[in-house]
Design a protein around this nucleic acid. Structure first.
Length: 265
DNA sequence: CGGAGCGCCTGGAAGC
DNA sequence: TGCTTCCAGGCGCTCC
């Protein structure tokens, strides 16, 4: 399920293969993923254009063209971006193909939760991004504290809120909470300053390491135990609990992440 | 403001 | 073996 680090990986793939290259063809296999743009409009807007340096905001990949419109890709739960140095036919679950002289970028999406958007220019891009909080990677401690201020809900729900910070998904949230030894259900307004600092550090550590070492061995991380029925905490060895928080399956260590006072009773 | 619930989707696993 | 049911969850939406 693509989160910030996955999308950053896709951004680098786009940078490597598509930046500075002219799009020579576009195949929309599944128009169902397009939002506020038709397949024809997308093709007319992009084919013949040269892509500039891509950016990322949260889970959105931002692919501007030189002096032209901006392509936006969201990967949903099961999306990925693949490069093939040949002009192949669409493969299973390929939804959009971006064809270049030297190969093809495949926007693949099994469960079709991915989204493709197009904005006219920088101003429209800014308007679109204004619905999101700042990107979770590289946010300052000061800004993190400022955004937490005044919030009252469950901590994990807040972390997943893209208006709070952009880019955190279920897996990153669980990992950061586990590393910071904070319970997912603790109320934000019940957090001490020390705990907020700890969360900030843990979150930045997770994001930086997962971006820097994409696809690394995660055996010492909580993430490693996801989906395992006999999972134990990589830190203390106690069984890992599997609960539902904010509608999402949540993994936590009930020993390391002590429950909020209201729940302990 | 927060949060619960739903629908969108598909494929793999689990149950019968 | 083959069928049905459940489950995974990012996100946008409604409703309370």
């Amino acid at each position: 399920m693509p989160e910030l680090h996955d999308v950053e990986h896709f951004r680098r793939l786009f940078q490597e293969h598509a930046a500075g290259k002219r799009l020579v063809g576009l195949t929309v296999v599944d128009p169902g993923l397009l939002r506020d743009v038709t397949a024809g409009e997308l093709e007319r807007a992009l084919v013949g254009r040269t892509f500039a340096t891509p950016a990322r905001h949260g889970k959105w990949l931002i692919a501007p063209t030189e002096g032209g419109p901006v392509l936006l890709l969201h990967f949903g739960m099961t999306g990925e971006l693949l490069w093939a140095p040949s002009d192949g036919a669409p493969e299973r679950h390929d939804r959009v193909l971006f064809r270049f002289d030297h190969g093809v970028l495949r926007f693949r999406n099994v469960r079709r939760f991915g989204r493709v958007r197009l904005v006219r220019d920088e101003a429209e891009l800014c308007a679109f991004l204004s619905a999101f909080g700042p990107d979770a990677l590289g946010i300052t401690r000061r800004e993190f504290h400022a955004r937490l201020f005044g919030r009252r809900g469950a901590l994990k729900a807040t972390l997943l809120d893209q208006e709070f910070l952009a880019g955190i998904g279920n897996v990153i949230a669980d990992e950061a909470l586990w590393q910071a030894r904070l319970h997912p259900l603790v109320r934000v307004d019940a957090l001490t300053g020390t705990e907020r600092d700890r969360l900030f550090e843990a979150l930045q550590r997770v994001l930086r390491q997962w971006v820097a070492h994409y696809g690394q061995d995660l055996s010492r991380w909580l993430t490693h135990v996801r989906g395992r029925p006999d999972a134990t905490c990589p830190r203390c060895g106690r069984p890992i609990a599997r609960v539902r928080v904010a509608g999402r399956t949540t993994y936590l260590c009930e020993r390391c992440q002590s429950p909020p006072r209201a729940l302990a009773a």
